[in-house]
């Protein structure tokens, strides 16, 4: 059966290749740091499932030390100049979009169909992992097509991947780091403590203040944790169910739906939601790490106010 583990092998191979190319890059004075960082990441993807929790923990600490202390430089893979790109864009025409479009089409087609195939009664793909496996398949097909069509020198795709990976740098592991922090928070009972504070200190005697506290609490707690999924159980158990539903007779479906979306307003405003806010800034080569957050805050605030009003108007009516 093909599942995420096989996708991780592919990723491990990619990072291993990037590490080897990095170690040979004489232009980058910090090449040892780059090779070490990408190499450790390769180990994580290739062997993370068998080396045990403690070894994984030590591996993460090593990644943090390398990425957090400026040990990574930026490699100089050979690529084309802006003028060459301009010329090739004219030459290739709109066909250049083809391989880029293969990815989503295979990803969707695969998600819808792959889980149905089986060999001797064993399903070919684990259905719970179908989306990510199909995405990886789409990428593999696109890479194959692009290589057959464009015929670049053998290591070109890997070198170009290294160029982009170096431009994102240590931020590559930020989303996983935040997920791990969330796990430590959960283990330490942080959520319960925040919920107790919210209910002890706030005036919740009126339906409107209960609704406002719930929505603002979802947004703030999400901003701190970086994830609305962590905030939802805490705020809903502390304020949502006991007050909005039980005391004031609100509709639980409306409360849950709008409450979660209030949390998403918080996601727009926080560096803790790294894969949405910090990683794109790195990917788009923005010098200001918080540039994406800055343009999202003026949308998040009126939207949160709108959510509070929507919930107050709807939740006690249906």
């Amino acid at each position: 059966m093909i599942g995420l583990e096989q996708v991780y092998w592919l990723m491990g191979a990619m990072f291993a290749g990037i590490a080897i190319l990095s170690s040979r890059d004489r232009v980058n004075p910090k090449r040892a740091g780059n090779a070490g960082f990408w190499g450790l990441l390769a180990v994580s993807f290739l062997f993370g499932s068998i080396i045990g929790d403690l070894a994984n923990g030590v591996l993460v600490l090593a990644l943090v030390l390398l990425g957090g202390t400026g040990a990574l430089g930026r490699g100089a893979p050979r690529t084309t100049s802006p003028r060459q790109r301009e010329a090739r864009a004219k030459l290739r025409g709109n066909w250049i979009f083809g391989p880029a479009l293969i990815i989503p089409f295979v990803a969707i087609g695969g998600t819808l169909t792959l889980a149905r195939f089986s060999v001797h009664g064993v399903p070919l793909i684990d259905s719970s992992e179908a989306t990510l496996v199909a995405l990886a398949l789409g990428i593999a097909v696109a890479l194959l097509v692009a290589n057959i069509w464009l015929r670049p020198p053998a290591s070109t795709a890997l070198e170009e991947g290294r160029r982009l990976a170096d431009s994102v740098g240590w931020a590559v592991i930020l989303p996983q780091m935040l997920a791990a922090l969330g796990a430590v928070f959960a283990l330490s009972g942080v959520g319960g403590a925040v919920g107790r504070i919210a209910t002890t200190w706030l005036p919740l005697g009126h339906p409107f203040t209960a609704v406002a506290t719930y929505c603002v609490g979802m947004a703030l707690f999400t901003a701190v944790m970086g994830n609305a999924f962590a905030a939802f159980p805490v705020m809903t158990a502390a304020v949502g169910v006991p007050l909005i539903v039980h005391r004031f007779g609100g509709d639980p479906a409306i409360m849950g739906a709008i409450g979660m979306l209030s949390g998403f307003c918080g996601t727009l405003t926080t560096p803790m939601a790294a894969n949405f806010n910090i990683v794109p800034a790195a990917l788009l080569e923005l010098p200001d790490r918080n540039a994406v957050i800055r343009v999202q805050i003026p949308t998040a605030i009126p939207l949160l106010i709108g959510n509070i009003l929507l919930m107050y108007l709807l939740v006690f009516r249906y």
Partner: peptide, 26 residues
């Protein structure tokens, strides 16, 4: 350290999107 490593390892799926870098770069 072990708990942190375990959670980091279990959330590797969020990084699958990086697999797209070589194609986009090419």
């Amino acid at each position: 350290v072990a708990a942190f490593g375990k959670a980091f390892n279990q959330s590797r799926y969020v990084s699958v999107v990086w697999l797209v870098l070589p194609v986009i770069g090419l």
